[in-house]
Design a protein around this nucleic acid. Structure first.
Lengths: 207, 207, 207, 207
DNA sequence: CATGAATGAGGCTTCATTCAT
DNA sequence: GATGAATGAAGCCTCATTCAT
């Protein structure tokens, strides 16, 4: 809301945002009270409203800011494997699983967005999908992967990331095991390479 | 809570559950009040507590009951293509997308469970995954699909279903387009058939 | 309310009253619900209102009916020692302590009346006091005990009974010990005999 | 609950406690609503929960705080007559009756505790009894009063105080009449002095 | 007689937000 | 900038009571 002017103000604002990330990650949005956040941040209750105009605004800002950080991480990872989309996916997924392992609360924060501010949630995935889709399309143009609807493909891949992240990182409470990652990547690699020829159009290639 | 004894009681209880499904599907759990539900059901506020001991209990019962119905639908669909796992997947996914198209509210209800009762949410996916996994393992044994960790594979497939359902059914507000379905199935078919050899071990097959 | 006509009705009414005594003795009046009582009585919820027009009416009836029984018990005991008021007190107190030991719930029911229906509560004590007072006055006339305000004296004795009943019967959860009873009676006996001369006017008489 | 930090907060808390004393003294605990208290205190409903976590907690605090004040009053009175237990009793009872005359609501508050929080109620009387008992024992050691079980004696005296307070102060709605007080003290004085020899063992002393 | 069902008034409690200091 | 205090709207839930069968 009010942008902080002093260094002290910046510091307080950051503390509130960090506290919000922690608390929103532990409990559901609606089970979190402003005083939970201010207590965690070590500031007075009223201070919250110096920096955010509402609980929802703080949540939104958190999602947006962290989403930005997060996209940067996966993009950078994927860009290290230009010219080989399957390798880029492997790098991207690995970075993604690492990231959620290290920012577990953030994982829940983003998922909750669907029930706090659906537009924000869609925007989050649509923005991510747009970048993903562009990369996939480029790879199709270069012949690295089979041609198909890049939008649909992007959501398939995001779905895999989301569920495997949940199943193999969040639930176990530790980094993904390398074998699980390999199994995921094998499936994805085959799917990406083969989806033009395989299955849907007679499947003669396997003969 | 109190089990109804008379037919009238059974009827009221069903009406409440149907109303809950509708309302929980439209708004977030925490934005739904008991009176929203009773109003929709056309009964008095107090009547809710004749049948459910709390809002959360009603939500839980809804998830469990509907989850059961839903699993039955996809299972039946998949069983019509015994002996060809890829075909079974196509049947299952098609049934799944049809189901969520016709039970849009249910889709949101289940997703929300993560933030209402996490144990219930996990149970839901774990139960579903257990059945899925068994079917995939059998298909591996029969050589229909490449061998890999069936648990991981089940979550990959569930993730795809979940995200494509969101992107191609819920968001557009209409049944999935046949081309999108075909694109998804092409990716899945290739992934399932090829994931032992492809990608991870040199991927010479495409040469 | 409606007086029962059939034997079955009488039976149901008694069951409800007995259940009410038990439940009101265990919990506070306001923590007791009608369904607690009907459940205990083994009848349907609606049945309560066949016999009592309200919760408070049932409570009142319980107090009155039981109070009547109770007064009868102590009166009978005291009457066995006509001509010796101190002995009559001993008999009355003994009967009283026995009674509350055997009807523990009743003890709490009566005490609660103060906070449910104060008029009823006063009436209870005033009725009891009236009889008590008459007996004490007669004893004074016969010279068995010292003369003093019989009303005040009656309340002194009721207070002793009430508190010793609480301390030495209810709290320990068992009949009063004979030594405690003896100590109480020694105090009362001396008080009754000596209160004209002793203490207030120099107390020289015991020299 | 939350301890106030500022003077304003202290003031509000006190106002709430004073209002609670008044209202709980007028109506039964369960007939008092939080808004009755806040209305009396002149604050908003929510303010109650800034200082107390529940109605019961406020009630408990009230009993404890006021009980403390009350014990101090009677103790001080009794200590003015060291060396003459009967005189000390007279001073204590007089102070007690004065106190309840001036704090009528408090009288009902304490009695209600039995049905709100029984443990608190017992604690109240046990604490009071412990002090009383010690004073009586000391008097017995000094030969001022007859020897008997001091615990039992303390409860006899408390019972008298309680019932006479009710009958001669609360019910009439005015201070105790001096004649009633004298009658009570005559009974107590005789009881205290004579209870070893008198009554129980033949009572020949009055002959 | 008996009762399961229905209900709405009412009370406790939470909490996002405002504000004076 | 910071904050403790204050608040009223809102929601969950209980339960005495009524009623149709």
């Amino acid at each position: 809301m009010t942008a902080p002017v002093t260094a002290r103000g910046m510091e307080t604002r950051s503390r509130l945002l960090a506290a919000a990330e922690k608390i929103f990650g532990e409990k559901s949005y609606y089970r979190v009270s402003i005083s939970d956040i201010t207590r965690e941040a070590g500031v007075g209750q009223g201070t919250f409203y110096v920096y955010f105009s509402s609980k929802e605004e703080a949540f939104r800002e958190l999602v947006q800011q962290r989403a930005h950080d997060f996209r940067a991480v996966t993009r950078v990872a994927a860009e290290q494997a230009l010219g080989d989309r399957v390798a880029a996916e492997r790098a991207g997924f690995t970075a993604f699983f690492d990231f959620i392992d290290q920012h577990r609360q953030l994982y829940r924060v983003v998922r909750q967005a669907e029930f706090v501010d659906e537009a924000l949630y869609r925007e989050y995935y649509q923005t991510f999908a747009a970048g993903y889709r562009a990369a996939l399309e480029a790879a199709m143009d270069r012949g690295e992967i089979a041609r198909t609807d890049p939008e649909v493909l992007a959501y398939c891949l995001m779905g895999i990331g989301d569920f495997i992240g949940m199943r193999c990182v969040i639930w176990p409470g530790r980094p993904i095991e390398s074998q699980s990652l390999a199994d995921v990547m094998a499936f994805i690699g085959a799917g990406l390479r083969g989806c033009d020829a395989a299955g849907e159009r007679g499947g003669g290639s396997t003969e």
